[in-house]
Design a binder for these strands. Sequence first.
DNA 1: ACATTAAGTTTTA
DNA 2: TAAAACTTAATGT
Length: 231
Amino acid sequence: MEEDCVAEFPDFRLNAKRDILRGWHRIFRTKQRLTLPARSVIAEQGKLSRNLYYIERGLVEYTYLDAEGRQNFIEMLGDDCVFPLQPVFANSALTGTFWALGPCTLSVISAEEAYAYLRQDSDLALELLAEFSQICGGHVRQIAMNTGGIVNRVEQVLCLLAEYHLRHIPKGAPLVIELSQADLARISKTTRVTVTKVLSDLRQRGIVKTAYGGLIITDLAALRRTAYESI
DNA sequence: ACATTAAGTTTTA
DNA sequence: TAAAACTTAATGT
């Protein structure tokens, strides 16, 4: 009875239902394609990008650089997400930087082109509204995740990344997360030291294998269990 | 229960 | 071999 009331966490945009922008995808797939190496900056904080990007494949992070020079994780985007909405639709400078977490394939159109499409097809506006709602859902998830312990949070981030990668690797292939512990710390909003501790605990329990610049999840079911237990 | 600091080891380029 | 990545321990809030 109580279970009926418990809603699922809203998804990060990373793993959200990705058929939302179907109409936009049809448009973007005919446009200029961009292949970027990991770490590339796509749209920079404080600037007014006049382009709209569609992620065909890859992970993009949105990061806020604060006055002390720290990189603060805001959100993670995956395949079939559109960005940046802020400069294109609110006409204001970006509050953060969009950059490639791993190798990315993007499609690009100009803001003017996007507006032209929007004027001729109101379904495209509805799609963007759905995408915008999904962004809000992702932010709600982050607030909700902050209520749990830090260990659970790191484990949950690993689960989210695992779910993304599962869709791109053949069944039974090793689940490799090619991110450094510094990356995982930033995404989990904690320190490298804490990530090291969580990973070595997971390693001792046979859930992950650690390596330099990445890790392999060997028991995702067990990872899910610990990540979402007792919160 | 976490962050911070510091000082070590291991890996990569 | 220097820099980057990772580990561990001590200490602080």
